Simulated scan of single mutants.
Amino acid sequence: MKPMPPPIAVMVARMKPLAPRHRIAHLRALISGLPDGSIRHGQLLALLRDELMAPPANENRAI
Rank of each mutant, 00 (worst) to 15 (best):
Q43F: 07
K16Y: 09
H41C: 13
Q43Y: 08
L52N: 03
D50C: 06
M4L: 15
A57T: 14
R21N: 05
R28F: 02
N58V: 15
N60R: 09
L45N: 08
M4C: 13
K2V: 14
P3N: 08
H41G: 07
A19S: 13
A13N: 11
K2W: 10
P35I: 12
V10P: 02
M1N: 14
A46L: 12
I63A: 11
E59L: 11
V12I: 15
P3D: 13
P6G: 08
L44P: 01
N58A: 12
L44C: 04
I31G: 00
E51R: 01
P20F: 02
D50Y: 00
P5V: 10
M53P: 01
H26R: 08
R14L: 13
R28M: 15
N60Q: 14
M11T: 07
H41R: 14
K2T: 12
L45H: 06
S32R: 09
G33A: 10
H22G: 01
R28E: 15
N58P: 05
L45R: 11
L47P: 02
P7Q: 12
P7I: 12
R14I: 09
E51F: 04
P35G: 10
G37P: 05
D50V: 02
S38N: 11
A13Y: 04
P20A: 07
Q43A: 11
P17F: 05
M53G: 04
M15R: 00
P7W: 07
V10H: 03
L34H: 03
A13D: 15
P3H: 09
E59N: 08
I24A: 00
P7C: 13
M15H: 03
G33W: 03
H41D: 05
R21Y: 03
L27V: 00
I31E: 02
A46G: 14
I8T: 12
